[in-house]
Design a protein around this nucleic acid. Structure first.
Length: 105
DNA sequence: CTTTTGACTGAGT
DNA sequence: AACTCAGCCAAAA
């Protein structure tokens, strides 16, 4: 299942790091970026899948985030020492996690 | 069983 | 700059 591959990657995002929808889709060879977000929409393992560490390609947060309410995602990231700039976006050059090849299936 | 739609993005109009 | 279209999976209606 494709979703499993998505979860399998998101699940390993280390603390203080983030991943973009694009990065994940690209890693899996997908063109439809929405699948990443949609996979998280039906997030089956919220305990092991840190959906708050997945952001849009420009570093801003997904608008449809509902992990406990809008704004929660930002708080969770700040708890992990992830800084937001004046636009409320993350510095991807600094926080974007490089996906190990071993994680792909 | 068929249709709709959605945590996105980049190119084309 | 604002809007549309394509990409093409899975769950919900």
């Amino acid at each position: 299942m494709l979703f499993q591959k998505i979860y399998n990657i998101v699940r390993f995002i280390p603390e203080g790091k983030v991943l973009t929808y694009k990065a994940i889709a690209s890693h899996l060879g997908l063109k439809d970026i929405r699948l990443i977000g949609y996979a998280l929409h039906g997030n089956p393992d919220t305990d092991n899948i840190p959906c708050h560490r997945v952001v849009k390609s420009d570093g801003s947060l997904a608008k449809g985030f509902a992990y406990g309410g809008p704004g929660i995602q930002k708080q969770l990231l700040q708890q992990e020492n992830v800084n937001f700039d004046h636009e409320g976006k993350i510095n991807l050059l600094k926080y974007l996690w490089e996906i190990p090849k071993e994680q792909s299936s």
